[in-house]
Design a binder for these strands. Sequence first.
DNA 1: TACATTTAGTGTCGAC
DNA 2: GTCGACACTAAATGTA
Lengths: 101, 101, 101, 101
Amino acid sequence: MAKVDNPRAVAGDNSGTEQAATKFAKDALKALVERIERLEDEKSSIAQDIKDVYAEAKGNGYDVKVLRKLIAMRKRDQNELTEEMTILETYAHALGMGVFG
Amino acid sequence: MAKVDNPRAVAGDNSGTEQAATKFAKDALKALVERIERLEDEKSSIAQDIKDVYAEAKGNGYDVKVLRKLIAMRKRDQNELTEEMTILETYAHALGMGVFG
Amino acid sequence: MAKVDNPRAVAGDNSGTEQAATKFAKDALKALVERIERLEDEKSSIAQDIKDVYAEAKGNGYDVKVLRKLIAMRKRDQNELTEEMTILETYAHALGMGVFG
Amino acid sequence: MAKVDNPRAVAGDNSGTEQAATKFAKDALKALVERIERLEDEKSSIAQDIKDVYAEAKGNGYDVKVLRKLIAMRKRDQNELTEEMTILETYAHALGMGVFG
DNA sequence: TACATTTAGTGTCGAC
DNA sequence: GTCGACACTAAATGTA
């Protein structure tokens, strides 16, 4: 098991007058970690929401795969998109594929 | 297969009395897409927040790479724990044993 | 740690005249597992070869991303491909995107 | 960006003295694609072998799902072990400690 | 910039 | 036959 249950492991030194400072350091680290974990929870939650929306859309007859492609395309730079399609056609043509006419 | 049970949902046909229905369908698609994009924006926003927190932590002298590892480990350990219980049960079942009996 | 070092754990019963049979069962399981792991090693090895070829191609000026797309397209059923493109165009048109003309 | 340092490699231009060079480029692309496809065939073949082994195991009364979990665990445990050592070292370093001391 | 890790998407399998 | 879960593959991100 790899979990670090004991923050003391981080401190390295609990002797003498360092105790208070060490405790502060431990608390700060703990707060930091928990702050990040809270944000990651939120992110996961929204990711789940997105999945739910797609599932609902599927129930309404939409083609989810195509929806995803569509949204991905809307995100991408137009120039890049057309350029990529161009080179894809070029390659396809070089191989004698007729997909793009 | 790119299935569409109800092609009318996104049909380009605007003739006759279909106009209103088509418009509704278009609006529905538009609303759906924008809803997803809004959620993805939120997700990206939170991802950005996380990056900011890491950057701030780095400014405070934390080792970001180590932080990431730590958090990943904390996340994974829970999964491992539950997975280990799962496989134990599963394994017991596969051998025809009663629940841990 | 989740590793099952001791196959005896699988047996559940080593008493009496069951010992020999249990040993056979253990050996059979061990052989099975190792057989699968050997095959997975081979698979990983070839996967690595493929990565190497792509890297080499990249060094020769090929666009790896496009190459992957191209090869993926060659694998897919033509009817499915064109149908998916059709519906994608339909959706895109409904949203007023001009990508496909 | 779909970069192509050497567009000549796949150019469709067949005019003048470029013909021979173009043909070479086409052949090179074709050879490359087929080489990758051959490797992918091998990979698929082995993947199929693995599936067959699992199917055979299932026929012999093994619980395939459990088998998969077992094998995944065996693979992961090695990684975890080494990862745990890595993070320990990393962590020690982040705290300014000498190597484990 | 190239590499490695992590995350999303796609295809496959088993259950109902 | 459809639905949902799992595993695998491919893309994106972050780091050195």
